[in-house]
């Protein structure tokens, strides 16, 4: 297998632009997904029971069906209910909703994992409710849920490749186009695979560093 470097140089600007789209859609959907997921988790924990049940259905449906089907439903079905979106907004919306379902479960598990004794101890020491949340619950949760958050965010990156199916001009679509233009599918796809692999491994490494940094103040278990 040979890589045609001249060809690659010629296509480089397109490839860079497409990887920019991949990274931008990924980052935006991760940030929005975490925010929406946290909101869902808070609403489920502190809201009335009907809200909890409705959100549980939302989460279970999004987690139980394939992302590709959700994407098709939104992109091709949306116009029939007055929701006509261009590929990039449609992809971003679908990815955000999909991610938020998983993120909400992670945050929910985080809430449950902070020992009740720590919250009671804070109350005894005269912490206000806001102080307890900001100084006890959120920092403790952050350490506990970080590995799961990183994991899910990496999963979201891999899911952005699926957006090529609805012609979001991201990297997988661009590389496939170059592949069929030049009949060098295998080379192009191999480079594409290496790109995702490198990015995923880099994220995992960063996640482990952040984990080590955040767990500094954590005591060893009893």
């Amino acid at each position: 297998m040979t890589v045609d470097w001249g060809l690659l140089a010629e296509k480089l600007p397109d490839v860079l632009a497409a990887s920019g789209v991949t990274v931008a859609v990924w980052a935006a959907s991760a940030v929005l997904g975490v925010a929406l997921g946290a909101a869902v988790a808070v609403a489920r924990r502190f809201g009335p029971r009907p809200v909890d049940l409705a959100l549980k259905l939302f989460v279970e449906v999004l987690r139980g069906s394939p992302f590709l089907v959700q994407l098709f439903l939104l992109y091709f079905g949306g116009p029939f209910i007055g929701l006509s979106l261009d590929p990039i907004p449609a992809g971003l919306l679908a990815l955000t909703l999909y991610g938020s379902a998983y993120y909400s479960e992670i945050v929910r598990a985080g809430f449950a994992a902070v020992p009740a004794g720590h919250v009671e101890a804070a109350a005894c020491l005269g912490f206000t409710r806001a102080q307890t949340v900001l100084r006890i619950q959120v920092p403790e949760m952050a350490v506990l849920v970080l590995p799961a958050l990183v994991n899910m965010t990496v999963l979201l990156l891999k899911e952005t490749a699926v957006l090529s199916v609805i012609t979001v001009p991201e990297l997988t679509l661009e590389i496939s186009a170059i592949g069929s233009e030049t009949y060098r599918f295998v080379e192009a796809l191999t480079l594409l695979a290496l790109f995702y692999w490198g990015l995923v491994e880099a994220c995992g490494g960063l996640g482990r560093l952040a984990e080590a940094r955040l767990s500094r103040f954590r005591f060893a278990g009893p």
Binding site: K158, A161, T172, L189, T190, A193, Y196, W197, V200, E201
Partner: peptide, 22 residues
């Protein structure tokens, strides 16, 4: 393990579809 967990399944499938005939 790292490779097959690190590359999107869609890319793996496209690769296999084009690699086998090649």
């Amino acid at each position: 393990v790292s490779f097959f967990r690190g590359v999107p399944l869609l890319v793996q499938l496209l690769l296999i579809y084009n690699l086998l005939p090649a």
